[in-house]
Amino acid sequence: MSGFQRFLQNMGQGFLEKVAAFGRGSLFIWSILAAIPSALFRFDLLLKQIYVTGVLSLPIILMAGLFVGMVLSLQGYNILVEFNAEEAVGSMTALSLLRELGPVVGGLLFAGRAGSALTAEIGLMRSTEQISALEMMAVDPLKFIYAPRFLAVIIVLPLLVLIFNALGVFGGYLVSVSWLGVDSGAFWSQMSSQVDWQEDVLNGVIKSVAFGVLIAVIALFQGVNAIPSSEGVSNATTRTVVHASLGILGLDFILTSIMFN
């Protein structure tokens, strides 16, 4: 009986803790959203965060986009050539990039590159009392630290994904037209007849905005709730990457089933 009671107690306690954490998280997100208007007035801070999260992520996004596009068209060519349909390699590459791989791979890379850095930075700022110092200097960390970062991530990720997609298509063009000898005219015409501006390009952008919100929320929340020690910060960084990656994949499924059904 006492064992059962303890089991119930543990379960109840765990549940209450989860509810409390969820409540804290929602409250935190809400207060960041409320601080966004004033963050827009601090254009210098926003610009700096766009630089840190966006411009510094460019090299990895450029490389990855090019290679993903090249691999996609190489594999696609090998399959399609069996059906004598190798002209379709362009549309296949573009569709897979725009609909899925661009937002998802871009989001995963971004979570690893910028999301983890964000968590570590905020965790360290808290453990070195910089956040407390800001509060004491009557500078609201919500407006000065969190909101500009939140906004920057949401702005930056769709831009990075657009660049990723463009480079991916270009990589596909390099492999299939320049290397494998697919006809250039057929490559482009097949692509533009199959790819729809709204359904494929814009939906991909919408996806990346959603992933940006997800990464920003997770990275900031983990940073703020990190235990202020070197181990705590490193654990929080790991959690950001893991949670954000799984979240992206799960959210991608939901969004795909809404958008493309």
Partner: peptide, 26 residues
């Protein structure tokens, strides 16, 4: 809080600003 100053144990200087900018920050 503008009437308060606090000296933290670690100093809590903003890590990405130099000494001058840290003092100029408030």
């Amino acid at each position: 809080r503008r009437k308060m100053g606090m000296l933290f144990q670690s100093g809590a200087l903003l890590a990405d600003l130099n000494v001058f900018e840290n003092v100029a920050f408030p």
